[in-house]
Amino acid sequence: MIRIVGLEKSFKKLEVLKGVHFEIKPGTITAIIGPNGSGKSTIIKTILGLVKPDKGEIFVKEQKLNGGSSYKKAIGYMPQSARFPENLKLDELIGMIKDLRHNPADCDEELFTQFELEKEFLKPVRTLSGGTRQKVNAYIAFMFNPDILILDEPTAGLDPISSSFLKDKILQEKENGKTIILTSHIMSELEELSEKIVFLLDGKICFEGSADLLRINTGEDKLERSIAQIMKGHA
């Protein structure tokens, strides 16, 4: 579904990605993990075309990215945080995003109901709380039934109920054959959701495989400890 070959990126003198290769198979959940600043968001943003790579190639659905934007029709993206135009109301914001995607008839409104966004619908976006904005981001990402979902720390800032709604939704979409990429620092979440872990350290992949494999490799029985051990080994 997504193939990344030899991806390199530096911001000014800071080398963020130093040759990253990996492949994501359709219908799987892949978690990209790693310490802060290891390049997780940069990988996600290069797939979305927000960051232009210095070297390397990305293929989405066997199509090489070359600056076009039509492949994004198949992608739903939930950013880490988002500020929206100050003076728009939530219904106008949602209307705009739908309009940009040519108003498809069969939008997925499930998260809208579960998150009870109805109450906030007519409020200006600037008055919404951080958690509510995250809910809006999640709703927008799932709205167009995309084949690929990219979720950057999806449950950060959500209350436990909403967080479990979102996790159920992620698993449900996986069952529907969607390909999901997410980043997270929450171990329980990783154990619950991800089938495959891509561990990023200093701009390179230092582990790729299932959570079980990670535990076996490191000889620890807790995921958190295994991850910590890899990070220590590198330092």
């Binding site: 927000l50 492949y71 994004k72 500020r83 940009l100």
Partner: peptide, 10 residues
């Protein structure tokens, strides 16, 4: 950030 959101759309 809003431009980022727009950029992630087609």
């Amino acid at each position: 950030e809003f431009i980022e959101l727009l950029l992630s759309q087609p």
